[in-house]
Simulated scan of single mutants.
Amino acid sequence: MSISTVRVLYIDDEENNLQAFKASFRRQYEIYTAISAIEGLRILENVDIHVIIADQKMPNTTGVEFFKSISNTFPDPIRILLTGYTDIEALADAINHGDIYRYITKPWNDLELHNSIKNAYDAYRSKIDLRNKITELQKTNDELNRFIYSISHELRAPLVSVIGIINLVKMEGLYQSSGEYWGLIETCSNKLDYYIQKTLQYYKNSKNLLDHTEINFKELIQDLIDLYSYADKDTPFNVNIKQDVVFVGDMFRIEVILGNLISNAIKYQKSGEPNKTVNIDVEVRDYEALININDNGMGILKEHLEKIFMQFFKSKTHHGSGLGLFIVKEALNK
């Protein structure tokens, strides 16, 4: 955009000042003038203004008050305040709240005001460019997430077939017929399925949609225990659930949180522990559910406690994807 198409609105209750401003800058900018804040607001509603200049001392309102009144409806134009007197408190308040970009004393110096308008327009362009780039980045990120989600779904179909074939091999007693090969295939398939499931959880959790559903914690937790204990039937669960009231919440995210924690409680048991155990206590109240999950597994090193919710963090003793607890934290935040 050339400098001649920079649109400047000047609001002042003194006609002489408006005429002088127009005479000085009409060849450099596209000038709009208003004799009052109300007239200035009408212009803003009909013209895409880049820079607004307002006199501080006007009848019925001040320049600072006018800028504050349009901060939500017209956030983009850059604001310059003209003041013929020093009102430090009003200026400090306006600057601190981001309502003005710069203030200039009256009578103004043409060169100073010209440079201020140019700099203000540069700030305007930077703001718009940043917003456009953020929008473009969000669009790209959404497309990437949709692509990952689609690919993950496509990968799951043949993977489920492979796992189904392994189960048939077990049913027919042929699991040991080829040495360790079937076991290696099963291990790799389960690991790939785990990563795909975590990817799908991450994608779904990143969406802002909330699912308000009636939740029966007894049924939900039992289903999750059955789902995740297939690989280790030796870990006993002590489940204590007190739910005498209806609980409505985000079913998907609560399931993600509990599923990851129950899965970890099973996965990270001590191999030589003779009395493996996982305790799950839930107390449902009118407006909250208190959930406690603990186990006597290998635990977490103290130096890792501040890192366990970081994406892709893996400790030397825990061989996971580094996504589980990150997803739990994200789900809790949402």
Results as ranks from 00 to 15, higher is better:
28 Q>H: 15
52 I>V: 03
6 V>T: 07
45 E>W: 03
55 D>V: 08
59 P>A: 00
12 D>C: 04
11 I>M: 01
24 S>E: 15
39 E>Q: 09
67 F>T: 02
19 Q>T: 14
29 Y>K: 08
46 N>M: 11
36 S>N: 08
45 E>I: 05
64 V>I: 08
13 D>C: 08
42 R>C: 03
12 D>V: 05
46 N>K: 15
25 F>D: 05
24 S>N: 15
65 E>Q: 11
18 L>H: 08
42 R>T: 09
5 T>L: 14
51 V>R: 06
16 N>T: 12
61 T>I: 12
54 A>W: 10
20 A>G: 09
5 T>E: 14
28 Q>I: 12
43 I>Y: 05
66 F>R: 09
53 I>Q: 06
43 I>T: 05
68 K>I: 05
59 P>N: 00
69 S>D: 01
49 I>T: 01
57 K>P: 01
48 D>T: 07
45 E>T: 03
13 D>E: 06
16 N>S: 13
15 E>K: 13
38 I>F: 11
21 F>E: 02
17 N>L: 12
43 I>M: 06
11 I>G: 01
58 M>T: 04
53 I>W: 01
3 I>T: 14
58 M>R: 05
9 L>K: 05
59 P>H: 00
55 D>E: 11
16 N>W: 14
18 L>Y: 09
39 E>P: 00
16 N>I: 15
66 F>N: 02
41 L>R: 13
16 N>L: 15
40 G>W: 00
48 D>W: 12
37 A>S: 12
52 I>M: 06
13 D>F: 11
9 L>N: 02
40 G>P: 03
14 E>R: 12
44 L>S: 04
20 A>Q: 14
39 E>N: 07
42 R>Y: 06
51 V>Y: 08
25 F>W: 13
67 F>W: 06
21 F>L: 10
15 E>S: 12
31 I>M: 08
55 D>N: 13
37 A>D: 03
41 L>K: 10
35 I>N: 13
4 S>Y: 15
46 N>C: 02
64 V>W: 08
4 S>C: 12
29 Y>I: 10
46 N>S: 07
38 I>P: 00
20 A>C: 10
34 A>F: 07
14 E>Y: 13
8 V>C: 10
11 I>A: 01
66 F>Q: 02
